[in-house]
Write a protein that binds this DNA or RNA. Structure first.
Lengths: 186, 186
DNA sequence: ACCTCCATGTAAACTGTTACATGATTCA
DNA sequence: TGAATCATGTAACAGTTTACATGGAGGT
């Protein structure tokens, strides 16, 4: 997956591993996170496979920048992937739900404290998404009108992020109430 | 993670790798999926580490069953994990959002078709959750009253699943409308 | 005759995370 | 003086997926 994401970005313009990491961290990382180590090694591997080429740009002081450019073969790989529709619903991996699943015997007060903490964390995420949305709408869309169509799609994924966080918070509230009720019954 | 999940299950009763797989497939797999190969190898590793013990139960015909039992050290591992509250919001990996993120240049009709297919798939998932909910409420909860408290927590995770699928469907509808609008403008 | 279920495993490949490692510049 | 940013990489490990492999029992 990270290969496709890198290629998808390089379709816009040549970039270094560092640039890619910066870009990811403010966009796709919200639904597909990657460490810089993975990005650098994947870029090297893709260069061997002829999907990207690289050129070293010397810097005054500090390490040289290695700028990667997508090749026609690289373009083909992303496009083939995009043209092959997804026929399954993606499976999620949600550690917090695993915890709740096995929490029946835990001290309810500790479970409640954990739910409250999660609520705070998800609220913060929602806040980040709201700011990103504003940034996309008020800066990117105006400064780069040629990206208008792309921004529409980026905003869609952001709206999913916001829906997700709101839904998560509602569920946390619901679960909190339920555990409190369970506690009072005894 | 799969280690903890296995231990969490073995706390209820001794089980074989096969049993674990069956159980997972109808519960936790909705938010943490595992293949049988991983379960079998993890069980072996955990036996070496003293977290579980195994006993072979011969079958008439067909392979023997290897039944795993949790040890005190195993119990401690799950409990320690549960007592250490989670202090981050889990990061999601949602392949479909990656696709949407990079879909600006795709043929809108194909994107729309893919959204419609996803909608169907998520509707089916919701349906499965509804059936599981009914099963938990009307069978398990009545046949095993000693599990009442556990069932409450299991139902909570199911409700998250249902909220998630509903939210996803709403987002798909929203996105579908938006792409259609985008298309008509041109 | 064929499919599904029961039941177990190994091996290889792929993917992802954590830790180690360096070093200049800029800002508080 | 110390932290953050720019900029790159390697190595070891952990976790996950895919493919290969076997074979009886019971139902259609």
């Amino acid at each position: 997956m990270i290969r496709t994401i890198i290629l998808g970005y390089l379709k816009y313009q040549p970039m270094t591993g560092y640039d890619l990491k910066q870009n990811l961290d403010h966009s796709i990382s919200h639904f597909w996170h990657a460490h810089h180590s993975q990005i650098y090694t994947t870029l090297r591997k893709m260069e061997e496979e002829g999907l990207v080429t690289s050129e070293i740009i010397p810097q005054n002081g500090s390490p040289d920048r290695r700028v990667y450019t997508i090749t026609p073969a690289g373009r083909k790989e992303v496009e083939d992937w995009l043209n092959q529709p997804m026929t399954t619903a993606s499976t999620i991996k949600e550690e917090f739900l695993v915890r709740i699943f096995f929490s029946a015997e835990r001290d309810p007060q500790e479970v409640i404290a954990e739910l409250i903490l999660q609520r705070k964390l998800h609220e913060e995420k929602l806040h980040v998404y709201l700011q990103l949305q504003e940034h996309l709408q008020n800066k990117i869309q105006k400064e780069f009108p040629q990206l208008a169509r792309d921004v529409t799609f980026w905003l869609s994924t952001l709206r999913m992020g916001m829906r997700f966080e709101k839904m998560y918070m509602e569920w946390l509230d619901e679960t909190l109430n339920e555990i409190q009720r369970l506690n009072e019954q005894k």
